[in-house]
Amino acid sequence: MTSAGTASPRRLTARGAKTRARIVAAAADLMYVRGVGMTTLDDVVAASGVSKSQLYHHFAGKDALVRAVVDLTGERVIERERDALGRVSTMAGLRRWRDSLVQNNALRHGAYGCALGSLASDVADHDDVARRALEQLFAEWQGLLADVLRRLQGTGALPADAPVDQLATGLMGALQGGYMLAQTARDVAPMGTSIDMALAHIDSLSAR
């Protein structure tokens, strides 16, 4: 797992670690719903129930807090995706992965998008440390998709010469763009269509 450099800034007491975790979890929730730009440190203080001095004890400023949010969100997303994709070796399995993402997003009518993708949109141009951490996290996620495609090659469901890394990147592009379409429409239908089309195109390679 990659890190934006804030995972273990210094040795913390159990109580200190708990306080820090509470701050980061509250910040992650706020930034997911409101976006990084619309979340202030005062908002985080209020939502986490800590004092401002406690927040500044753990984080020098907003950039440091955002990097910790990137680490936490990345850990959550990669763990979820490792569970979901780790044993997938069929197109039907990939479609079940698609169904799960779309269904989960439907619970919120697609309102907030992908937690990791939203952070990428918000910080990529403003903080190079966070950008590089997010780049690594997306590489890890795309690697999980590429591993699925390699297993499909192993069973003959995809041609041996299919460019799996490029296809995995394309599939991630369709997924992230699908989240954005759902967010704009407040409806997950276009997200579902986007991933369906990408999967159909990958599946069509087997018939070439």
Partner: peptide
């Protein structure tokens, strides 16, 4: 399917742009 393909292109431009910015 031109409408679904057009939708995927719009999604790909947006999603691909985010990944390329990273």
């Amino acid at each position: 399917d031109v409408h679904r393909t057009a939708l995927l292109i719009v999604a790909a431009v947006h999603g691909g742009a985010v990944l390329s910015r990273l």
